[in-house]
């Protein structure tokens, strides 16, 4: 510790932005896993949206000359029982699943964190009202509601479907965020911010949410995989993605039973899904480490550990 510099000091060096955002970004970019995950997701997007131009086949048009064919030069991923090209179907399905998985996870996590943090932070009637809403949505059979509502939303397309999936996916996360917020609210740094005159919503975004970020990130990465699968379930019942349109979920559902005999119907879609979820997890891990300063990054030396007196 140095002694006090009494004089008001020379003009400071050129203002540098050393804010949290920049620090987190630097840390994120220096984490190899996160960068690999991001590259992988970008590659998957490239494949999903560029793939259809690579193959002469269309995802819906059957090739009656090739039924249940294994992968070949003609049909890269083989064909299914009615002669549709599996590669064309997979990349088409990947388009849907990527968008649905990421957006559902994003929307539900944002919603959950906002509702949970507000309920926990404000307490009182806000808390009671929001938790009533959460409990109500929890007891509603979400599946039933989606089945009832989705035919009416046909015209609005996939975005409505994403919103619906997100809407029934956030409640448990919100409850956990709420209870974490309640314990954070009593922490001194939150109290300090309040006494400094920081507005409640700013406290939530600047102090509460970063401190529950580890949980939120893990939850969001799990939600990505979950969203792809629940979309499958709905598609199976004829809501969401409808035949002849496909998603990874519908492909998997269709291919599961035939996997032992015609593995190409199942393993290409499954492999891409695994890759996708893995990439998201890598990004999530990197983001969590970047947000948590105590996580020992490769560049960081741990500060001297405090010991009991």
């Amino acid at each position: 510790m140095t002694t006090v510099a009494a004089e008001p000091t020379a003009p400071p060096a050129a203002p540098r932005t050393t804010g949290r955002g920049r620090l987190v970004l630097t840390r994120l970019l220096s984490a190899r896993g996160a960068v690999a995950g991001a590259v992988l997701v970008l590659l998957l997007f490239a494949l999903a949206f560029g793939g259809p131009y690579l193959t002469p086949w269309d995802y819906a048009t059957p090739d009656f000359g090739a039924l249940h064919q294994p992968p070949s030069a003609e049909h890269w991923f083989g064909t299914n029982g009615i002669g549709q090209d599996v590669f064309a179907q997979t990349v088409r399905g990947l388009q849907k699943s990527l968008v649905i998985g990421l957006l559902v996870a994003l929307f539900s996590t944002v919603l959950a964190s906002l509702v949970g943090a507000c309920a926990g932070y404000f307490g009182g009637w806000t808390d009671r009202a929001l938790m009533f809403l959460v409990d109500l949505l929890l007891v509603f059979p979400s599946f039933l509601i989606i089945t009832i509502v989705s035919p009416r939303l046909k015209s609005t397309g996939w975005i409505a479907f994403v919103l619906l999936l997100a809407l029934f996916n956030w409640m448990i996360t919100a409850r956990v965020v709420r209870s974490m917020t309640i314990s954070l609210r009593e922490r001194e740094f939150v109290r300090a911010a309040r006494f400094m005159g920081v507005r409640p919503l700013r406290i939530i975004t600047r102090h509460i949410l970063p401190n529950v970020a580890s949980f939120l990130i893990i939850d969001a990465t799990i939600a990505v995989g979950g969203a792809v699968m629940s979309e499958t379930a709905l598609s199976y019942f004829g809501f969401g993605v409808k035949a002849p349109d496909v998603s990874l979920g519908t492909l998997l559902a269709a291919g599961t039973s035939e996997a032992p005999v015609f593995p190409w119907l199942f393993y290409f879609a499954a492999g891409l899904l695994v890759l996708f979820v893995l990439a998201v997890n890598l990004i999530g891990d990197g983001l969590r480490d970047a947000l948590d300063p105590t996580a020992g990054g490769p560049r960081r030396r741990r500060s001297a550990r405090r010991k009991k007196p």
């Binding site: 620090l23 740094f189 300090a192 911010a193 920081v198 102090h207 970063p210 401190n211 300063p293």
Partner: peptide, 24 residues
């Protein structure tokens, strides 16, 4: 506050912490 560990947000660099009342 009494306990500087508890009164500083562990997830904020100290530059941001010091700037917070100014932002407020």
């Amino acid at each position: 506050f009494q306990d500087p560990m508890a009164s500083l947000d562990p997830r904020m660099p100290i530059g941001d912490i010091v700037a917070e009342p100014l932002r407020a």
